[in-house]
Computed example of a mutant assay.
Amino acid sequence: MRPARARIDLQALRHNYRLARRLGGDRALAVVKADAYGHGAVACAQALAADVDGFGVACIEEALQLREAGIAQPIVLLEGCFDADELTLVDRHGLWPVVATEAQLQALERHPPTRPLRVWLKLDSGMHRLGFDAAGFAEAWRRLHALPGVAGVVAMTHLARADELACAHTAEQIDAFDRVCSPLPVSETSIGNSAGLLAWPRARREWVRPGLMLYGASRFDGPCAEAEELHPVLTLESRIIAVRELGPGEPVGYGGTYVTDAPTRIGVVALGYADGYPQFAPTGTPVSIDGRPGRLVGRVSMDMLTVDLSDHPQAGPGSQVQLWGDRVRVAEVAARCGGSAYQLMTGLKRVAREYRD
């Protein structure tokens, strides 16, 4: 069997969720959209089910996958309904839709639920993606409360730059949210995504929405003490399948982008960009070889990549190589590759998942 593996630590997942709830102080919505950021939505939801206050998904397809797997906790549709016909399924499965557009609000007014429905109403406080402006939000709030089938409304917004620790935009968004909500009888609010929850105490409201942090990663532009408490959940690893002994001046891999400058041992690892590892990861991107720091050299191929074994005389075929996990942080790999931890995690494919509880 091909040795590429994604090992997923469910205890670390639960630790990160409990950290989110502790920081938030009330209720935490575990965001498991995009197949739980590449970790497996059903397995992660089942691991969290005993603790969780609710789950967040992007769309109704993801919600139905959880319901079919026996997940009974509240599920929020973070992008709401894309079609009015979906409200029948929302009603049947007890889902909580976000209302962020006039079309979504009108659909709900035309198709009132048959049982009490909790709605999340989104304000555009400065992200300028989805959500009502200030005047539209207040009017939508009144219209929702006029519907007999609506049992409650959670006021929410989304932070655009919370990972930029010195940026004033986050405080401005929180202020804008509070200005709009203060004249209304709002009892439940939600601001904090992962970055907001970890770094901005004013974003910690009745509901917080941890996503990336659940999986043990962050992407701050400076030190954040709370982020240091996160435990990596996924370890991407494979093994060396061959070793080459090269002299100086020898090119390695496609395009010859890396050329040896001395006698060099090269390890060939069974993992490549078809597995989701970044194709253009540069020479020097960190790896761990048998638990010791190492580096990638040459261009990543579809099914293989190469590492420098010059400082690893004991390494050879069968040696374990960690691409990211507890020894190599996914955010560090992403930074070297000009991407993000979100992109790397959600881009994983083909590698077998192995869960540890």
Rank of each mutant, 00 (worst) to 15 (best):
Q73N: 14
D133M: 12
A315G: 04
A334R: 07
L123Q: 06
A72Y: 08
A334Q: 11
V119N: 04
R327M: 11
L198I: 06
L89H: 03
D261I: 14
G316M: 05
E228N: 05
A4G: 00
H145T: 08
V259A: 06
G40W: 03
E226H: 14
V99P: 01
L165T: 03
V119Q: 01
M1Y: 06
R118G: 06
R92I: 06
L165I: 11
G192F: 01
V76E: 02
S187R: 12
A43M: 08
D326P: 08
A107D: 08
W200H: 10
E332Q: 14
R2A: 05
I60S: 07
P286K: 09
G40E: 04
V31L: 09
G70W: 04
V351M: 11
D124I: 10
R239K: 05
I191N: 00
R295K: 11
A315H: 00
R110D: 14
R239W: 00
A217R: 00
A151S: 13
E79C: 14
V268H: 15
R292C: 05
D303M: 03
T88G: 12
R21W: 12
R161G: 04
L323Q: 02
P3L: 06
A45P: 03
D326A: 15
S125M: 11
N193Q: 02
M304F: 13
R5N: 01
E228I: 11
D308R: 09
G222Q: 11
M1V: 10
G338Y: 14
L117D: 01
Q65T: 15
P116K: 07
G38V: 03
G149I: 03
E354S: 11
L123V: 08
Y37T: 07
A43E: 14
A335Q: 14
E86C: 15
D91G: 04
P313K: 02
K122N: 12
V154R: 00
V243E: 10
I60F: 10
E61K: 14
W96K: 07
L197Y: 00
C167Q: 11
G54N: 14
G256D: 12
Q173N: 13
R209A: 00
G255Q: 08
A135Q: 12
A50I: 04
E188N: 02
R115G: 05
V57A: 14
L66I: 05
R67I: 12
E139N: 13
H39C: 09
A58D: 05
A84K: 13
L64N: 11
D26C: 15
R129T: 12
A331I: 12
V98P: 00
M302R: 13
L165P: 04
G126Y: 04
G338M: 06
D91T: 06
A151K: 09
P201M: 08
V150C: 04
R202E: 10
G347I: 02
W324E: 01
L121A: 06
L108Q: 03
F132N: 10
G325E: 03
A58Q: 11
G94L: 06
S319F: 05
V243L: 11
R202N: 07
P210A: 06
L198V: 08
G94V: 04
R27N: 13
Y215C: 00
V31F: 05
L184P: 07
L77P: 01
T283A: 10
P183M: 13
G25D: 10
R350V: 09
T189W: 01
R143C: 02
W324G: 01
Y17I: 10
A146W: 04
K349W: 07
